[in-house]
Design a protein around this nucleic acid. Structure first.
Lengths: 198, 198
DNA sequence: GCCATACATGTCTCACTGTGCCAACTCAGG
DNA sequence: CCTGAGTTGGCACAGTGAGACATGTATGGC
């Protein structure tokens, strides 16, 4: 029972969570983030307000959880880069998955625009970057620990943070000009302005 | 009357605002941010909950306004740097005021620690960085516009964001090790890890 | 097949926040 | 004295987040 039972419950939970997230996203895009109440999302899914809070800590957490998965993906991509690749370039390549995923269809652009323009969501967005930064810093330390002692923690965090700053400025520009230039090129431009992508 | 009257009102307002901020900071440090209610701050200053919201949009805005002044100061310092100084070094020097101000007494360290560890305040902290970033980007564009056309907006934002990422990792480390190394040295270390401080 | 048990959910309740609205007060200028 | 701008307090309201408790509901062992 400790096996299949837990797995089943877990899968059910995930399914419900996904339903809630889907309803929430739809309502957000339809009528805006602030104008959507938790109750609306809950009713839409056939749940109570209280139960919504058993899956998400709040409205903004709906997007927060979506981003956690992406964070792990980026960290994994980074640690898969060849060890002799310069760190800055490896960071750039680590973003490739994200860039590709955001480049498919107009939906991601709408969500990204809403995320950057809604104060409450912008906060979530920045918090997400802070989490990604720490995760990437871990990988960087591990990556560079091979040749001698790795860099100090502070350097790893700084480097990861700088890369994310580049990503953020690329996203800002991307949203501002409405997908005029592909996100990947903007990211190259941004990161190159910080340090040469050797 | 349009002269002294308005000024008087303005000074009174600022005085009340300062009193509120002082009471809020004290209560935050004493009993934590989340555990402090708006009502407590208001009563402490002899005001009503309603009136507190006429000075600050919320608890976190107390620190938010403190940071706005510092943001303007940093931007001013940056634009005062010699035009032939490399941008990255100029950004580092622009932080000198902030570093010095945070290095005086144990109070700033406590506030900074609380800011980084409290979720709601961390969000304010990140938002503040976003504002600073845009302000610094403006100055950067202006600075480098002298020799020919300035850099693209995206590059200016990326550079400013990277500098702030360095500052953030320095602050994180500073708080983590409890002022073991001076903040200025940590900042040198962090920014050097991103790009050489020529 | 039956039941104890764990887990999800709904209802009720409470504290806190942010905001609109209105009455009362203060204080300078006519 | 009084008018008018600005500030404040009190009240009400919607929304959020969380604790307590009761009610299902499905799963496992018996």
């Amino acid at each position: 029972m400790d096996e299949a039972k837990v797995d089943l419950r877990e899968r059910t939970r995930n399914a419900v969570r996904a339903q809630l997230a889907e309803a929430a996203l739809r309502l957000f895009v339809e009528q805006g983030f602030e104008e959507t109440t938790v109750e609306q999302i809950a009713v839409e899914t056939g749940l109570s307000r209280r139960s919504f809070h058993r899956y998400f800590s709040g409205k903004e957490d709906v997007l927060g959880q979506w981003n956690e998965a992406m964070g792990r993906q980026i960290a994994a991509a980074l640690s898969a880069r060849p060890a002799d690749e310069p760190a800055w370039l490896a960071l750039r390549r680590g973003f490739d998955d994200l860039v590709q995923q955001l480049g498919t269809g107009p939906m991601p652009l709408d969500i990204t625009r809403m995320t950057l323009n809604t104060p409450a969501l912008h906060a979530t967005h920045l918090h997400k970057h802070a989490l990604w930064r720490d995760a990437l810093a871990d990988v960087l330390q591990e990556r560079l620990a091979e040749n001698g002692r790795g860099p100090a923690r502070i350097s790893a965090i700084a480097l990861a943070g700088a890369a994310l700053a580049g990503l953020d400025s690329a996203l800002t520009q991307w949203v501002a000009e409405g997908n005029e230039q592909p996100l990947g090129e903007l990211l190259d431009q941004a990161m190159n302005a910080i340090a040469p992508l050797t």
